[in-house]
Each structure stands twice: as structure tokens, then as C-alpha cells.
Amino acid sequence: MSAAEARAPGPAEPVTAFRLRDVRQVRGVRTLLDGISLDLPRGGFTALIGPSGAGKTSLLRLLNRLDDPASGTVELFGRAVAEYRIRELRRRVGYVFQTPVMFAGTARDNLEAAHRLAKTEVPAVGDARIAALLELAGLDASYADRPAADLSGGEKHRVSIARALTTNPDVLLLDEPTAALDPEVADRLMHTLAQLRETTGITMVMVTHRLREARVAATYVVMLEAGRVVEAGEAATVMHDATHARTRAFLQAGEGDAA
């Protein structure tokens, strides 16, 4: 059985990865998320789009409990995220930060970090798996022994994606994975991610401000504005035939965006 089949929902399994109901988030006196209800498809590639300050990152951080919502519920595979053991949840839901942080040492040290943190729960990653993970993230095996601090921004992003995959997660969350990259490198990375989802069946949720990326890789699109969902649906529908005027305006404004 291939990895994709292993992760594809069986007949009795939920087709929804994340289910959010009436989620509110506040920071001080500011309301970041104002009553979000969403169902994000299992095995899909969801793009969270919307202007800056819409609450995209605030939403993403709830999905592996880097933050908890002020109110409302977040479920993963039919179970409240708060009911998972927190370290288990975070190993099953990988998170790639907008600004990649490399741990001390080589790329290999970074890919072995999850095992060092939980020796019994996360199996050691051998050379073959390190090479395979680097390749999945679009780097060749020679990168394993390069000092992580010396890598370029794009390479760090790729290593941090490979690192997030070392726990063999069911879900990968990505916060603006291409923000710091030039368009060509960004395109390659998006291609890599789309391929990764197709080969492994992993569920992906990505925050992006680049509409082209949403168009190329996403299967499901959520348009956020001012902490509310403006529109959510199949990528093809939302991107080409948005029902909401705000979404159409946002998409049209983005057309001039070379990226």
C-alpha cells in the first residue's frame, strides 16, 4: 500500500481534516479572528488568502495549538485539538514558519532534532531517509552536512520543510513559505509542495499573499478579511468564479502582482 493510499480517508473516516466552529481570537483589545467556521478537506491543499492583517497566521497557529482561541472549537479528524496530547498533536501537524529558524549544526542535525526531542516516539532518521526528505524538499543529499546557518533563505526554507516532515505528519501547515523567495525559487517550491501532497496524501494548509500560488497548487481556497471568512470553496470555483464582491476585488487587485 502506498503512502498516499495509507493517508487517503477510508469510507468510515472523516473527509474533513480541520473543523472550526465560531472561533474567535483576541490579542489585548484587538479582535484577530471574529467568528470563523470552516471545514478544511482532508488530503487537500488549502490556501488561506486575504489582505495582510486578515488573521491568516492567527488562524494557522490555532491548528497545532501554538495558540488557543479565545472561544470556539477546533477539531482535527473529528476530535478537539485540545484533547490530543500536545506533543503528539504537534508531531502530527507540522508547522513551517514564515521566517525559517535553523537549529545549531548541520542540515542533518536539524533533521535529527525531532528524534533527539522524543527518542521513543520518533524513530531515528537514517542517511537514506535524510536524503529522501531533502530530495522531497527539493535539495540534493549533499546538503546534509552543510552548516545550516550558512544556507541561503530559500535553502533554509526547504530544510525547515524537510524538518517538519521528519515526524511523518498527517498535516503540514505553511506560513507564507515563499515570502522571502524570488519568484523563480518560489515557483519551484510550490511545485515541490504540490508534488509532495500528491505522493504522500498529506493535508496541507498554506497562508499566502501570492494569488498565483493559490492558483497553481491549491485545491481549496479560503478568503479571509478582518478576521472573517469572506468566501471558502473549491479552488477552481473561488479563483475563477468568486461569488463575493470582496473576493473578486481582492483577486483583481492581485492580477497586477507580478508574483
Partner: peptide, 20 residues
Amino acid sequence: RGEVEAYLALGATPGQACAE
């Protein structure tokens, strides 16, 4: 902060995440 959250997101305990 970035390093600590990156460790937490990878399944670290708080003690592990802020070891440095």
C-alpha cells in the same frame, strides 16, 4: 522566540525548547 516556537512545533517540551 522564533527558535523556541520552532522547537515547540516539532514536539519539544518547553524545557527542551528553551534549553539554549
